[in-house]
Design a protein around this nucleic acid. Structure first.
Length: 576
RNA sequence: GGCCCCGUAGCUCAGCCGGAUAGAGCAUUCGCCUUCUAAGCGAAUGGUCGCAGGUUCGAAUCCUGCCGGGGUCGCCA
């Protein structure tokens, strides 16, 4: 239990005592009562809003109630001072041994410091990436991949059972296009002059080897054969190889999914039919005709009767077709069944989507709400687009000739850790720029560098201290800490809170911001030693002080490593 | 036209399930250092939190309506 939760629990117990003593009515809802660090550290170590929240339902005023609570808080052994301020805040200051103990707890827990049981083992399925298996990963997929993966790690660390899943869209028209593109490369491999790849087919050279392989394997038997004889075979072969490429690309980023689900397999197993039947029985699917979209009507608009899901019952603007007029499933129809399937084994679902699919969020949430009867928490996290820049100039990309920036290109240029960290330096639903020059810049305004630099400085201490104190150091005496050192410990102590809050909000970027703040505090502390050698971590001639400061530094390093681990970034031992 | 996201300092962005004088980096200005604890350090200036209402003891945060930017819009994935 972290230090804030511990004080919150003590407060809760003390409120119970007040009920017993008749100072508070029984049965008050305490859900809104918080214990958190105040915005201004001058107010103390922690603040609670208990008096303000409970005063009205208790029929008293905040200041009077605060007095009663404060009296009991003062009796707690961890509490050094209590003050009432503003409209009824209760500010408390903890005894310093609390913080000394917290630093010890960082060392004791090590890589587990910050781990939480908040998730209570709840089973969360998080689906991310799910790029179409028609080519290598490009930068458009990158952000969602990193955000999804970091969120998965974060939820795990916060006590959830996490499944990382990838949905392979191997059943739609695009994979047929892929198969036809491969057929062209297959003919090419057999010596045919194919010239320029026709419009509408995938031009990328990455399909050449697939064509070669098919040519080697099957010879010329499919060259002039009708499409129905080779389409499925070519499609499956191509998809399998594209997925190998995608897995390799993801591996470059350190991403490994637990489950790969195939849309084709889902359909072959009759899952969409099952979902449809269940929905029809509950009058949530009916056969109907949609109105033409408002605004401009498409020229080729023809009213058709289709099986429609009543998503309007769940807040969508329009009911949505689950099958096309040719009888095959729409993407939504299959996706609905897919989510239904995921909900069989998971307590909560999360999808990470590109913002270009924002328009379809309501219908899938409606479908999940319908099929699970509202029992499964389901979040769709939208990840906004990333603009690629080189020295401030937008990187030109044309889809033609496969001239797009691939994920592999970027990772090879700036490195996995830089890509991952940078993708987490904005909240997911805000657009961001990725400038090749800036992300590798060695300066204070590059958070990647700044955090890594802090860790490298700490790591350097371990190497250097042996030169200064070859005979070793005495045991740690944390009573030697001054206010600056204690402030750093207090900042470390908020890490478990940040983890829980970030997991709860499904916002992994908060870890990155926390680490940046922590690094900034560390650098500030470190810089005190610039003009005052006695303020350095390693103080020649003072082994006791050195031991204490080294202990704190190592604690900071530990928390930085733990945060970076959640982001999937390796901490550097030295800068190069 | 509908829907979704965003709108906070000159710029790029944080702001934790509403909380006490709204934060950081860059830029600007002013000092310091020119170092071997490495690619600077310290400080100051700077904001009607897009606008207008509403809910609340209390709103950048929640609700409604506008304005501006981006995205998306029948059976594509």
């Amino acid at each position: 239990m972290n230090i804030f939760a511990r004080i919150a629990a003590a407060l809760d117990g003390l409120l119970n005592d007040m009920v017993q003593a008749g100072e508070l009515p029984a049965g008050l809802n305490r859900a809104a009562v918080t214990v958190e660090p105040p915005r201004d550290p001058a107010h103390g170590d922690m603040a609670t809003n208990a008096a303000m929240v409970l005063a009205k339902p208790a029929g008293t005023n905040p200041r009077a109630l605060a007095e009663l609570i404060a009296t009991r808080l003062r009796a707690l052994p961890d509490v050094e001072a209590v003050e009432i301020a503003g409209p009824g805040f209760i500010n408390l200051r903890l005894v310093r041994t609390c913080w000394e103990a917290e630093l010890a707890a960082v060392h004791e827990a090590g890589e587990n410091y910050g781990r939480s049981t908040m998730g209570e083992g709840v089973n969360v399925n998080i689906e991310y990436v799910s790029a179409n298996p028609t080519g290598p990963m490009h930068m458009g997929h990158c952000r969602g991949a990193v955000v999804g993966d970091a969120l998965a790690s974060l939820l795990q660390f916060a006590g959830h059972q996490v499944t990382r899943e990838y949905y392979i869209n191997d059943a739609g028209g695009q994979v047929d296009v892929l198969a036809r593109s491969v057929h062209l490369r297959y003919r090419e491999a057999l010596g045919e002059e194919v010239g320029e790849v026709p419009e509408g087919l995938y031009p990328g050279a990455y399909l050449v080897p697939v064509g070669h392989q098919l040519a080697t394997h099957y010879g010329s038997r499919f060259v002039d054969a009708p499409e129905n004889e080779w389409l499925a075979l070519f499609r499956e072969t191509a998809v399998a190889q594209m997925m190998d490429m995608i897995r390799a690309d993801l591996a470059l980023l350190g991403i490994h999914h637990d489950v790969f689900s195939s849309e084709a397999a889902l359909q072959a197993a009759g899952k969409p039919e099952e979902a449809e039947q269940w929905l029809r029985e509950h009058d949530l699917v009916y056969d109907g005709v949609l109105e033409a979209p408002k605004g401009e009507t498409p020229e080729d608009w023809e009213p058709v009767e289709l099986p429609l899901f009543r998503s309007t019952k769940f807040g969508d603007d329009q009911d949505r077709p689950i099958k096309k007029s040719n009888g095959s499933w729409t993407y939504f129809g299959a996706d609905m069944a897919y989510h239904f399937q995921k909900a069989q084994t998971a307590d909560q679902l999360i999808d990470i989507w590109g913002a270009d699919h924002a328009g379809t969020v309501k219908r899938i949430q409606a479908a999940v709400a319908a099929l699970t009867e509202g029992k499964v928490r389901f979040d769709v996290k939208l990840v906004q687009m990333v603009r690629l820049l080189r020295d401030g100039e937008p990187v030109k990309m044309s889809k033609r000739a496969g001239n797009f920036v691939t994920l592999a290109d970027v990772v090879n240029e700036v490195g996995k850790d830089v890509v991952r960290f940078t993708m987490l330096t904005r909240k997911a639903d805000a657009q961001m720029d990725f400038d090749f020059a800036k992300v590798v810049e060695a300066s204070k305004d590059n958070p990647v560098f700044y955090v890594q630099y802090a860790h490298a400085r700490i790591a350097s201490l371990g190497r250097r201290v042996q030169e200064t104190f070859p005979d070793g150091l005495p045991a740690v005496d944390s009573t030697l800490f001054g206010p600056e050192e204690l402030d750093l410990v207090k900042q470390l102590a908020t890490f478990p809170r940040v983890v829980e809050a970030a997991a709860n909000a499904r916002e992994p970027h908060r870890i990155a911001f926390y680490l940046y703040d922590l690094a900034a505090s560390f650098h500030g502390w470190w810089n005190l030693g610039n003009d005052q050698p006695e303020r350095r971590v390693i103080v020649a001639g003072d082994p006791a002080l050195t031991a204490a400061r080294l202990h704190l530094s190592a604690g900071i390093g530990q928390v930085i490593r733990n945060g970076l681990a959640l982001m999937g970034v390796k901490a550097l031992e030295e800068m190069n």
